[in-house]
Design a protein around this nucleic acid. Sequence first.
DNA 1: CTTTGCACCTGTTGGC
DNA 2: TGCCAACAGGTGCAAA
Length: 271
Amino acid sequence: MPELPEVETTRRGIQPHIIGKHFKQIIVRNNRLRWPVHPYLNDVLYQKQVDTVDRRAKYLLIHTKQGYLIIHLGMSGSLRVLTTHTQPEKHDHIDFIFEDNTLLRYRDPRRFGAVLWYSGSLEHHPLFASLGVEPLSEDFNTDYLYTAISKQKRTIKNVLMDNRIVVGVGNIYSNESLFQAAILPTKPANQLQYHDCERLVASIQDILQRAILAGGSSLKDFVNSDGNTGYFQQHYTVYGRYNQPCLKCSSPIKKIILGQRSSFYCPICQQ
DNA sequence: CTTTGCACCTGTTGGC
DNA sequence: TGCCAACAGGTGCAAA
């Protein structure tokens, strides 16, 4: 479910409700996520205080003085804040309860997500050690992308979705960015010109930025919602629009599989 | 080293 | 209505 804008929206949604608070109790109903949840998570977190809620790639980082609670939402995960404790539903696997009874509830039907405790410094964590640049940082610029892809024989779409190059660009936004930049997803990355990279960087940043802005309107949905909200409907220009008319030139949108992921593009507008 | 494809799960959708 | 296949927004890891 979540790509970077959704994770960032989640961060902004939960942060004001848990920052500065101490963990009181952690209830793990199902520890079988991508990796088993720490068997003594309750003891590990007990009375630790939340300093900040950060994000790196699609990982949420709940920072305490003693270490990080790392949360990944996988494909179907979500977090909500509850001020009154309702009955957990089927896929509500973990409850984080704070001193003032604020409840942070983790739900993940497919269980591709992860909840980890790490007390070292992040750059040493194996999941973070080889992550590429943040797409919305100044490090992600035309020079960086042009250099990074110069020896990549894979398609540009596969490269964009590679965490070691740039993080946070998933299937939806890679499709959308390539359409906006008028570049075919099938194009070998090392065939892109410098000015292609310029448009692509601008498109990725523009699309992610606008999606985060759109998420801002749903921030209230993180508190006391029924669990179906918290994410926001975006209007997509190519993603999921197989055979529908291109919004620029009206020719039918094509669909192919690249790297086992559905890819959508306009054969006329994208070259 | 680069690149590919599998695997992990459950829920939803659409065709018959 | 039921059944079944296909598909879903992620990503670590083994293998080529």
